[in-house]
Each structure stands twice: as structure tokens, then as C-alpha cells.
Nucleic acid binder design. Structure first.
Lengths: 189, 189
DNA sequence: TGCACCCGCCTAAGAGTATTAGGCAAATGC
DNA sequence: GCATTTGCCTAATACTCTTAGGCGGGTGCA
């Protein structure tokens, strides 16, 4: 019988594509086996179980997203950097909704610590270097930015902003303007 | 055979409790049947299928959450109202994580229109009456507030803010301060 | 009060998914 | 060139979802 050349890495990548096509919730061991032209139990040589598979896809997506963010941030500062980082998240979610959903998959504390998650918060912190915040305000701002990015993208993806004027892109741009203004003039405690 | 007295409404409510106990993703027809002390197929006299069951739980949670928000908003205005509304969402998510997750369940456009969803945006608009915004800025602000509320609550629930100082409650309070400041001084286009 | 009907719950059965155990053959290493 | 490892397979079990069809108790009408 011909070998399909499966590896945990390749399964994570194929799983990510499957997620974009069907939705992350539809990424099942069976569906992935079908896509790889292999019987279901064969996957168990490469991933421990369904949970492990999802975790690998999540880690893959987090890494890919962090790489995109790092590239977008290079050579930018201030509002320019803020918008660039924000757009990376929004564009990724729109182009790869399944992978974006995967990146929200709950990880164990150990897995989260070893993931690209810390890179994401470091990059948000880097954006804040363009503004004049010191701890603990910087941490509060990191959390606020993360909340707006994830919240907006996730509501937009769920269709919460569709079918009503004005265009959600316009709201996105105004939200980023507002965040920039806010960070430049962060309210004292 | 004794009648269990099942109704679609009661199933939605029991399902909501099950969601809080096990997580919304674990709310299955089988688990709900077990909880109600009946055989699985019995549920199909009351709900069309698993998707229908989840939808009913989502509608129940949206309604309950809207009722809580309406009660919290009564007699408040300005920042007071902003904080009250925001706290309703955060507290609900912390006390009823499964129901909160259910309230994010994707609804068909018709179901969404008939749900308590519109009440939620109306209440956010009502909060904005305490600030000086006109359309389309008001819509942009509604979307921004929704993004921050959902984004923060969802990241906090996923553990994104845990295990690191400062306390996430502090960040929440600072985020609301920031939003209030922002709305009082909304940047011109 | 008696009876027919309906409705609520049941058993039976088929399909899909997750997972484990064990086998065979192709690739790998000495 | 042979032994071992490794990759994929079949077989089997368990659980969930869903449909079909049966039985009996509660309800409504005479």
C-alpha cells in the first residue's frame, strides 16, 4: 500500500485548509482522513486524538498569524503600526476564517506558553512604544487593543455588522482612529 | 410510562444549565436527554434536531441577557449607564459561561432578526444618548462598544488575561474609563 | 361515565465519528 | 540481505444523531 507521507505538521496544515473550507468545528479526524486519502485510524499514528489535532491546527494558525504580524510591523511605528497590526488580524480572519477560529481554540496553560501567543502580546506592546504609556497602563492598553481587535473581527465574521449601513470597513477605520486618539491621550487614573 | 413534562421551552432552559455546567459545545441531544431522565429520541418530539436545540438555547440566553441589561440600565445615564451595561455582559459571562457562549451561536438572519439581538443594539444606542454623537458616528460607536464588550469578556473567559498582573478587573475598569473618555471626546472624521 | 383519539415517551435500527488493538508490508539500518 | 521499525490497514467497540414505528395514558367529547 502506497504511503501517503503523513506527518503531524502536514496534518496540521491540511487541517487548517479544511477549517477554512468547512469551518473549524467541522474539522474532524474523519474529514481529515478523507481529505488525505487515508483511512481514519491511520491518523492516530501522527496525532494523539481529535483534541491534539485541533491543538496543532491552533498552534499552526497562531504561528502563521504572528509571522504575518511581524512582517507587517517591520519598519512601522505609531498609528501606522497600530493600523498595520490591526489589519493583519482582520484580513487574516476574513481570508482564513477557519484558521482564525482555530487560533481561538482554548490551549492548556503549557501549550499556550509554548505557542506564538506571547509573540502576539509582545507585538502589541511594540506598537504601544509609539505612544507614551508606562506600566501598568501599558498592560491595560494591550488588553484593550486585543479586545477591540478580537471583538470587532469576531462580530464582523459572525455577520453582526452586515445588512446595515454604514459599511463595517468604515467602522473599523473609525475604531482605529478612536484607539489612536485614545492612546495619544490616555486618561489618567 | 410517567410523562416527563418536556416542552421546547423547558428543554432550552435545561440546555442552558447544562451549557453552564459542561460548556456549550458539550450540550448534546444525548446529554440533555440524560439530564431530563428520558430516552434520546423523546427529545425529537420537541426540537427538530441538534441545531434547533442549540438555536433555542441561544435565543433563551439572548433574551435573558437583554432582560438583565434592561433592568441594569433603568434610571441610569452617561458613564453610569455605560458601566452598568458593560458589567451586565461581563458578569453574565462569568456566572453563566455556557449561556454566554450560547448567545454567540450563529443564527440565521431570520432567527437573528426575531431574537433579542436588536434589543441589545438598541440598549447600546440608549447608552450613547448620554454622549453627543450623531449618525453615522453613533453606529460606529455602537460597533466599537460591542467589540470591546465581547472581545474583553471573551478573552478573559478564555483565560487570556489570567496568570499575569494586574488583575483583569482593573483592566476592565480602565477600559471603561477609556471608552467613556473616548465617547465624550469622539475624534472628528 | 365511557370511549376514541392524540400525544408523549418508548424500542429498534442505521449512519457517522472517535478510539483502540492488532496485522502486513514497505522503508530503513546494519 | 536480513531485521527492525514504521506507516497504513482491517476489525471492533462505544457514543451521538436521526428516523420509523409502537404502546399506553391523558384529554375531550358524547
Amino acid at each position: 500500500m502506497a504511503r501517503a507521507g503523513l506527518t503531524p505538521e502536514r496534518l496540521a496544515q491540511e487541517g487548517a485548509e479544511l477549517a477554512d473550507e468547512l469551518g473549524f468545528d467541522e474539522v474532524t479526524v474523519s474529514a481529515l482522513a478523507r481529505r488525505c486519502g487515508v483511512k481514519v485510524p491511520s491518523l492516530y499514528s501522527h496525532v494523539r486524538n481529535s483534541q491534539d489535532l485541533r491543538t496543532r491546527i491552533a498552534l499552526f494558525a497562531l504561528e502563521e498569524l504572528a509571522d504575518l504580524a511581524a512582517a507587517a510591523l517591520a519598519g512601522r511605528a505609531g498609528k501606522d503600526a497600530l493600523v498595520a497590526l490591526a489589519d493583519v488580524y482582520r484580513d487574516y480572519a476574513r481570508e482564513h476564517p477557519g484558521r482564525y477560529a482555530a487560533s481561538r481554540f482554548p490551549l492548556s496553560p503549557e501549550a499556550a506558553a509554548a505557542s506564538a501567543g506571547p509573540r502576539h502580546s509582545q507585538m502589541t506592546r511594540a506598537v504601544l512604544r509609539g505612544y507614551d504609556l508606562t506600566e501598568p497602563d501599558q498592560t491595560h492598553a494591550v488588553r484593550l487593543l486585543g479586545s477591540v481587535f478580537h471583538g470587532f473581527v469576531s462580530l464582523e465574521l459572525a455577520g453582526g455588522f452586515s445588512h446595515s449601513a454604514p459599511d463595517s470597513r468604515e467602522s473599523w477605520s473609525r475604531a482605529l482612529d478612536a484607539l489612536d486618539a485614545l492612546l495619544r491621550n490616555w486618561p489618567a487614573n
